[in-house]
């Protein structure tokens, strides 16, 4: 089934906000955090922390799942 036939858009999203989870970012990106430090992505898809509790910010480390009512 083609992308169109299945009703999905022709172009997939480069940035995806996951419900209750991180933000997925596709491609090489450099993220500058509040402290001015620049972080280069190292994989084709990166998960960016949205809960602010990751020990590896700006990247997601799954910590959001330990927060009450994360979903």
């Amino acid at each position: 089934m083609s992308a169109e036939a299945s009703g999905r858009p022709e172009r997939r999203a480069d940035i995806v906000v996951c419900p209750g989870g991180p933000m997925l970012v596709r491609g090489d990106v450099v993220i500058e955090t509040e402290d001015g430090v620049r972080h280069e992505s190292t994989r084709p898809v990166s998960a960016v922390c949205r809960c602010e509790k990751s020990a590896r910010k700006p990247w997601c480390d799954g910590t959001h799942k330990l927060l009450p009512g994360w979903r």
Binding site: S6, C18, L24, A47, W59, G62
Partner: peptide, 23 residues
């Protein structure tokens, strides 16, 4: 695996399994 699987989890659940179940 800390960072890699935080990504894989999302892709595997939503883009692989959910789309498979729709197809």
């Amino acid at each position: 695996h800390v960072e890699a699987d935080a990504v894989h989890e999302q892709v595997a659940l939503r883009d692989v399994c959910l789309v498979l179940a729709k197809d």
